[in-house]
């Protein structure tokens, strides 16, 4: 337990000093501000366009739901990309610099390394996401009447869960290939595979990729909870499976 706490603390220090933590916070802060701003500006931009060109475009006034649509789009795509880029070196840098050898030969358990990395990445992602959500919520509530949000917790939780899924994929890929590229390609490969799977009709219900973005339909009440429940469960199971597989694999891997 003491080793776990110490190593987790080391992870936070490392993430702070390599500017990963501040960058992620700033990026998600910006995403949080951008979403309501884009929702508010888009009609204005189109209006100024139609003033000059003679084309008349009538658009409905933006609502709080437009801001949330932007939020789900930004965090679900750009936000996930930011996670992948920042956390891709999580395992790989330890392998390439050989920094683990000392600690593991001094008796630190191998699963401690994986669990600490998972904890640190999870906490950083959670804080960034909550910051983004809070800023976005504050601006949205400031500009619009919030209206009814259906299953608010679960729709936002789905984005978080998908980010967590990516983190577990990155750690597993990093251990499997021991390189930054391997980690990136493994994570990218799984995402591409999930996107291709979406071609098969009715599989979106079970596909974790629908958790990044598609749950907007849960928030605005277009779809019921039962439509997304299988994806939630499968995503959660996959996170646990990949984390457990990471530990098993890491135990057998030569440092």
């Amino acid at each position: 337990m003491r080793a776990y706490l110490a190593f987790t603390k080391k992870e936070f220090t490392e993430n702070w000093r390599t500017y990963k933590l501040p960058i992620l916070l700033v990026v998600f802060l910006l995403f949080g501000m951008m979403s309501p701003l884009l929702a508010k500006l888009t009609p204005e931009l189109l209006k100024s366009l139609s003033d000059t060109g003679g084309v008349v475009i009538t658009l409905p006034e933006p609502t709080a739901m437009d801001a949330w649509a932007q939020f789900f789009k930004n965090v679900g795509q750009m936000g996930m990309l930011a996670i992948i880029i920042v956390f891709s070196g999580l395992m790989a840098t330890e392998f390439s610099k050989g920094t683990l050898v000392n600690m593991l030969t001094k008796g630190m358990k191998r699963h401690t390394v994986v669990l600490s990395k998972l904890t640190a990445a999870t906490v950083i992602w959670t804080v960034s996401f909550l910051l983004c959500l809070a800023v976005s919520y504050a601006y949205t509530a400031y500009f619009w009447d919030m209206g009814t949000l259906h299953y608010a917790f679960l729709s936002f939780f789905s984005l978080w869960l998908f980010g967590e899924f990516l983190i577990s994929l990155l750690i597993f890929g990093g251990i499997l290939f021991k390189s930054l590229m391997g980690s990136l390609l493994f994570c990218g490969g799984v995402i591409v595979a999930m996107t291709i799977l979406n071609i098969i009709p009715n599989i979106t219900r079970y596909n974790p990729s629908s958790l990044s973005g598609a749950t907007l339909e849960l928030l605005n009440g277009q779809k019921g909870l039962s439509e997304f429940m299988p994806a939630f469960v499968i995503c959660a199971v996959l996170i646990i499976v990949f984390s457990a597989a990471s530990i098993t694999l890491f135990n057998k891997k030569q440092i």
Binding site: V26, L30, L37, L41, E44, S48
Partner: peptide, 20 residues
């Protein structure tokens, strides 16, 4: 173009960008 309604966005945005 009237910027006033967007000031709550623009000021923090400018601070972050200049800071970065």
């Amino acid at each position: 173009f009237d910027l006033t309604p967007y000031l709550p966005f623009l000021i923090p945005l400018a601070v972050i960008e200049v800071g970065l």
